[in-house]
Simulated assay, not measured.
Amino acid sequence: MKAIYIEAFAGISGNMLLGALIDAGVPFDHLVSEMKKLPLGEYELINKRVNKCGIDANYFNVLLPDEHQHDVTIGHRHEHTHAGHHHHEHGDTGHNHEHHSDCAQHCHQVKVSEEPVHHHHEHRNLHDIAHIITHSDLHDKIKMQSLQVFTALAEAEAKVHGKTVDEVHFHEVGAIDTIIDIAGCVLALEYLGIEKIFVSNIHTGSGFVNCAHGLMPVPAPATAELLQGLQHSQGKIEKELTTPTGAALMKVLAVSTNDIPQGFSGSKIAYGAGTWDLEIPNVLRISIGELEAEAGGELLVAECNIDDMNGELYPYVQERLLQAGALDCWLTPIIMKK
């Protein structure tokens, strides 16, 4: 089985994962053409090589018009305070952007405009985003998994803010960015034929970050909610290294592991870069390889004696048991005490 092992030693965001998947072999042009199937209006996709502490990595991002003018309401976007993004809905303007400064090697910048979009007053809730995804021309499996991730994200935001999922609103620019990150990652994993996803301990960062609600702890509340059930730690770097979108992708798609999965044999390593320059390499490392089928394991055997039942019913009973999930079902005649 083809599998992927994700090492989130510098955190994880949607665009860092997508950058790594492009580095692993997903053609950027294929991603561009598939994303055009989503009616999202005007945006630019950035794809370039950067160097982080000596590691050559791929940097992917989404650039949106008028992005600095907007804040997200209840379900505010945390993505742009992380290593992977470029506008600050938390209000954290303390790091340098690298859309052009690291473009010394190979850089793609593609502008997409499917239809005019008025960004200034439009907000979208989960229902609106689901409509965009389900009415696109993407493959049904891509639609389904993308909606699962977006739903997890909206549910976490709703719980944190004490609202219903329908009351969580993403501003237009945040919604476009997040849709591309999520649908793009799901599409890229499908393109590579990945059947199983593992993720290491996730480094979240620490400290506090500014947002529309004031200072928020790192990991941000929605991120912390999504990371429940996944191994994670704060570490000593006072930055928001893991974003809600990155956490949502891992919650829905990945299995948490504290080491390289048993039976996993890697054949290719790829790197996706974040924006910031940190004291550690600000990259997400992924290993693609094969996972051996698990040997052994435990099975539950259920058996019973049946006395005086019409023999014509047995085939029906066997059929229903197999439909219910039994691996096998067999009958044998027995001699009972009477």
Rank of each mutant, 00 (worst) to 15 (best):
A212M: 07
T164Q: 10
G207M: 05
E155T: 13
E172V: 11
D166W: 09
V199K: 00
E157K: 08
A154T: 14
K163H: 14
G214K: 12
E225M: 14
Y191L: 00
G229M: 08
A154W: 07
D177A: 12
G162K: 04
P219F: 05
I182V: 15
E195N: 12
V199S: 06
V165P: 10
A154E: 10
T164R: 09
Q148T: 06
V173K: 12
A222K: 02
S206D: 12
D181P: 13
Y191A: 00
H161N: 11
L226Y: 02
M216Q: 14
I194S: 03
E172C: 15
L226H: 03
E167G: 09
A152K: 09
H161E: 10
H232I: 08
Q231C: 10
A175L: 12
H213D: 11
L153G: 00
T204P: 07
H169D: 11
F170S: 07
E157I: 03
I179S: 02
H169R: 11
L187V: 04
K196L: 02
A154R: 00
T204W: 06
L230S: 03
V165R: 09
Q228K: 15
F198Q: 01
T151D: 11
V165M: 12
G214E: 12
D166Q: 14
F208H: 13
F208K: 13
A220D: 11
A220Q: 07
G207V: 07
L226E: 01
F170Q: 07
Q145R: 13
P217G: 07
H161C: 03
D166M: 13
L189I: 04
G235P: 08
T204M: 06
I197G: 02
N201C: 10
I176D: 03
A220C: 15
H169C: 10
F170V: 03
V173L: 12
T178P: 06
Q228V: 11
